[in-house]
Amino acid sequence: MPKRILQGTVTSTANAQTVTVTVERRYKHPLLHKTVRSSKKYRAHDEIGSFNVGDTVRIQECAPKSKTKRWEVIAS
């Protein structure tokens, strides 16, 4: 099964080797037919620590690295 890849913005780099990425998705409401924006935060593994707040990055699913990390940064 292929691994999911998401694109989002780095919102925090406070922890070592970890970045928090906010991924926004847009969809049309089924009844109101209005575009709705929803966002979700993912904690991703960043080995080198080369990303800063505001960077746009792509994250990929991986095996669990810790209690909360199931994603890793693959590109900017």
Rank of each mutant, 00 (worst) to 15 (best):
N15E: 10
I48T: 11
S39G: 04
S50T: 09
R25Q: 10
T11P: 00
T56F: 00
V36C: 10
S39H: 05
E61G: 06
T22V: 11
K69L: 08
A16K: 15
Y27W: 15
V57T: 04
T68W: 00
R43M: 02
G49K: 10
E72R: 11
Q17W: 01
C62Y: 00
D55G: 10
V21N: 04
S38L: 09
R4F: 07
A63Q: 01
T35P: 00
H29A: 15
R58K: 13
R4N: 14
T68D: 03
I74C: 03
Y27M: 14
S38M: 10
A16Y: 13
S50E: 09
V10C: 11
I48Y: 08
R70H: 09
K65W: 01
Q7A: 11
M1H: 13
I5G: 06
Q7C: 08
A63L: 01
A14D: 12
G49L: 08
E24P: 00
V21Q: 07
P30Q: 15
S12Q: 01
P64E: 06
T13R: 09
H45Q: 10
Y42D: 07
T68F: 09
G54H: 07
H33I: 11
R70F: 02
Q17S: 11
I5K: 12
V21E: 01
T35E: 13
T68P: 00
R37G: 07
Q7R: 11
C62A: 05
T9C: 09
S76M: 02
K65L: 02
V21R: 06
S12P: 00
R26N: 14
Q60M: 11
V53I: 15
V10F: 08
R25F: 05
L31T: 15
T13F: 05
V21I: 06
W71V: 01
H33Q: 15
K3L: 09
V57C: 06
V19D: 03
V53M: 13
T68N: 08
M1V: 09
V23Q: 03
R26D: 08
S66I: 02
